[in-house]
């Protein structure tokens, strides 16, 4: 057993600061364990959101030593022993209290996406290879770490013009679905603001489910937008042959 120094952000929307806590740590502990120990022994009013402690509910998102991460998936032995560990709330979302942020904006964005719409008289038969791509995206646990790290939202505050990586992933899962009948390319280009993404891949770097957000969802969706709006030969052919998807 050894003692480690934690610096935890405490406060609410009117202000706050990092507060030091010394925690006795044991082998195998994760950051969430330490936060719970602080709650138990030193600061009963420390607010944090969590649920599963198994990296599956997406509740315990925070920033550990400045990196967006799930507290329950970040082991203490990832950091040098003599190094303090800073825990802060997600920066891109409004603070509620301590480590808890208000992520409700995400649910508003979600509502803008037309849901799965099968063709009438669909035969409910699919090959595995046809749903592999969508299934990768279904691993999403809605931790919103990707939304938090995305500089379009975090730095440039373009919430009104951009869905963010999590919802580009959701659109991709619907667009690539073999039985879905809608075309959401216009939504991606306009309201979704896919052009604002400059594919710098921070979303992919932080995703705890290791979804290849940029390569498998955003870039393929950008290419579909190119087909429809930017490829001159394709546009000319469409005009000549009378349109279509």
């Amino acid at each position: 057993m050894s003692t480690r120094l934690f610096k935890v952000w405490r406060g609410d929307k009117s202000g706050g600061q990092l507060v030091d806590y010394k925690v006795d740590v044991q082998e195998g502990m994760v950051v969430l364990d330490a936060i719970h120990q602080i709650q138990r022994e030193q600061a009963h009013d420390l607010a944090c959101r969590w649920n599963c402690k198994a990296a599956k509910c997406g509740s315990c998102s925070a920033e550990v030593n400045g990196k967006p991460a799930l507290m329950c998936k970040t082991r203490l032995d990832d950091f040098a022993e003599d190094h303090s560990i800073t825990v802060q709330p997600m920066k891109a979302f409004p603070i509620i209290r301590d480590l808890v942020t208000d992520v409700s904006w995400n649910y508003t964005v979600n509502k803008k996406i037309p849901p799965f719409t099968p063709k009438p008289d669909t035969t409910w038969l699919m090959q595995q290879r046809d749903v592999d791509r969508s299934q990768e995206f279904r691993k999403c646990i809605e931790c919103f770490l990707c939304q938090n790290v995305c500089h379009v939202l975090r730095e440039h505050d373009l919430e009104d013009n951009f869905f963010g990586p999590r919802f580009l992933v959701r659109v991709a899962s619907l667009e690539m679905h073999p039985l879905d009948s809608l075309d959401r390319t216009a939504l991606l280009k306009n309201e979704g603001g896919i052009g604002l993404c400059n594919i710098t891949k921070c979303c992919t770097e932080v995703c705890p489910e290791e979804i290849h957000i940029t390569d498998n969802a955003i870039i393929p969706m950008k290419e579909r937008v190119v087909d429809k709006y930017y490829d001159p030969i394709r546009i000319a052919l469409r005009v000549l042959t009378g349109g279509g998807k």
């Binding site: 920066k91 730095e155 921070c202 190119v226 930017y230």
Partner: peptide, 29 residues
Amino acid sequence: LSPVACAVGEPAGRKYKGESAFPFILQNI
């Protein structure tokens, strides 16, 4: 430096358009 690394700040005061406007919209070709 847009962004220089993940969760690292960018130069202040720039109007960000990403690849949705000239010149970077040309990446689509």
